[in-house]
Write a protein that binds this DNA or RNA. Structure first.
Length: 510
RNA sequence: GCGCCAUUAGCUCAAUUGGCAGAGCAGCUGACUCUUAAUCAGUUGGUUGAAGGUUCAAGUCCUUCAUGGCGCACCA
């Protein structure tokens, strides 16, 4: 394979040498452009055919197509904002520069300076009067018409995907705008963006299996965070009233179109409000984000129409179950256990009653929720950080936001009764002892913080990647993450020597 | 983790019942000073994902493995 490839590679390397032989540096240090492709197209749109701009422009970009005509040539160059045609003519640039031109390939970066004109076929074009190579490309680009289709290469070599598939860039530009909008929206409401540890000593803030790592100097295991929740609540204890953190969390679980091992979550905490207020905030934030970035609240996702027009449906988890043919209202624990078994919930005998209800919900309700819906008032047992419901026994004040069958957000009236919290942790500890890998750790320092007193508060977590999926009609989470996790290819794995060196370091520190 | 499908030239794809592994783009050579999937003429390029097996003969059938996609399971 490398034998054959070397044919294509050899030619490019020969051209590189040709350029050097002419005394030209194929990798120079800078180029000062006066405009981007889109600006040139706009600014000179009024030029008539054959007419030429009074001033010259300087633009830089990557050569994407090249059409030679002997002593003249057309090419298209691409910059961050689009493509523009350029025209190089022997008469104009002279023999030496035209020789350089002939050593250029698709993929090379160049800078060109010249007047702008409109061709006979009506295209705004930059006449090359001065040509500079800015970077020689040594690898061939994918096919110019079909582009790059292979999903594996698109994910592994995202840089290539971005080069040749313009719609990919659009998705990530939108992602950036959504993230930026969320920050602005919250800051305007007086929220403060904060940062808390990513390396955790304890597992907490959510039900998930963590990644484990090791601190050599302290000689202790650490966990990559599964949620920032417990640190953000400590900030409420410290006196901040409105905080948020947007950042990466890590969960050691399966991968799918809606799961990546590391993903971006925003958590928002506000003192003196309850989960009803947070529901309103969630709705406002997402509706405004859609309007800002898409200009509409009517989405299409995976071929399905999703309408974000408020107000969104609110329904208790029990009522939602009932709507889907599973009536647990007024039933005893034993009756629910039997129902779970009938409905094919595995281990319905041993599982806690809350867990069974959750599984029934996951299986029979969530997939059917297509339009934005707040599912509220979950069982206490599976919500160890949420405050008990003010009027419903055995429930907490919690909501999950579901769209297109996907959980997008999770929130509660935050539990601030330290004694209740301690008892909930104790129950989690029992579950952990019984083998539940997702159960939370007893966090003594967090309990001490609560004992000093945390104001009543509402808290919210939103999965940013999933929100971006919905707002950009991206069918997979991998389409909204630049470099989604992939199994490494053999040649990209760490070398054995490297691993040996790392292990040696670890042993010496012990 | 389980099931189904895919893997052929740098890229996009063909190859009939198991019977000589092909095309377009890209590349190279030549022609061409307003083309735009430029055009025209010629031309290079293959361990068919890897390893075994069946067969006179394997891209094609069988086994194992690798990577990916899509479902399911688990989760957010």
């Amino acid at each position: 394979m490398s034998e054959e490839l070397s044919d294509l590679l050899k030619v490019r390397r020969e051209k590189l040498q040709n350029i050097r032989d002419k005394g030209v540096n194929p990798y120079p240090y800078k180029f000062t452009a006066t405009a981007h492709s889109n600006q040139v197209l706009e600014n000179f749109n009024q030029l008539a055919e054959g007419q030429e701009s009074a001033e010259t422009v300087a633009i830089a970009g990557r050569i994407m197509t090249k059409r030679g005509h002997g002593k003249a040539s057309f090419a298209t160059i691409q910059d961050e904002f689009g493509r523009i045609q350029i025209y190089a003519k022997l008469d104009v640039i002279g023999e030496s520069q035209y020789e350089l031109w002939q050593n250029l390939d698709m993929g090379d970066y160049i800078g060109v300076t010249g007047h702008v004109f409109r061709t006979k076929t009506n295209e705004i074009t930059v006449r090359v009067e001065k040509l500079e190579i800015l970077s020689k490309s040594l690898l061939p680009l994918p096919e110019k018409w079909h582009g790059l289709q292979d999903k594996e290469i698109r994910y592994r070599e995202r840089y290539l995907d971005l080069m040749v598939n313009p719609e990919v860039k659009e998705v990530f530009v939108k992602r950036s705008k959504i993230v930026s909008f969320i920050r602005r929206f919250l800051e305007e409401k007086g929220f403060l963006e904060v940062e808390t540890p990513v390396l955790h000593v304890l597992q907490g803030g959510a039900a998930a299996r963590p990644f484990e790592t090791f601190h050599d100097a302290l000689s202790m295991p650490l966990f990559m965070r599964i949620a920032p929740e417990l640190y953000l609540k400590r900030l409420l204890v410290g006196g901040f009233e409105k905080v948020f953190e947007m950042g990466r969390v890590f969960r050691n679980e399966g991968m799918s179109f809606k799961h990546n091992p590391e993903y971006t979550m925003i958590e928002i905490y506000q003192a003196y409000v309850d989960y009803h207020d947070i529901m309103q905030l969630t709705e406002d934030l997402i509706v405004h984000a859609a309007k800002e970035v898409l200009g509409t609240v009517e989405l299409e996702f995976r071929g399905e129409k999703i309408n974000l027009t408020p107000p969104w449906k609110k329904i208790t988890l029990e009522d939602a179950l009932k709507e889907n043919g599973i009536d647990i209202i007024g039933k005893t624990d034993d009756q629910i256990r039997t129902l779970g078994k009938e409905k094919g919930i595995e281990g319905a005998k041993e599982l806690g009653i809350g867990k069974i209800i959750n599984e029934l919900y996951d299986k029979f309700v969530e997939p059917n929720l297509r339009q934005p819906t707040f599912i509220i008032d979950h069982p206490l047992e599976t919500s160890p950080l949420a405050k008990k419901h003010r009027s419903k026994a055995g429930k907490v004040e919690r909501f999950e936001l579901i769209m297109a069958g996907m959980e997008l957000a999770n929130a509660f009236s935050e539990l601030n009764d330290p004694i209740d919290q301690m008892q909930r942790f104790q129950k989690q500890a029992d579950l952990k002892a019984a083998g539940d890998e997702e159960a939370e750790s007893m966090d003594e320092d967090f309990l001490r913080a609560l004992e000093y007193g945390m104001p009543p508060a509402g808290g919210l977590g939103i999965g940013i990647d999933r929100l971006v999926m919905l707002l950009t009609n991206s069918p997979s989470i991998r389409d909204v993450i630049f470099f989604p996790h992939m199994r490494p290819l053999a040649k990209t794995q760490p070398k054995p020597e490297e691993m040996d060196t790392l292990k040696k370091d670890q042993n010496e520190s012990k």
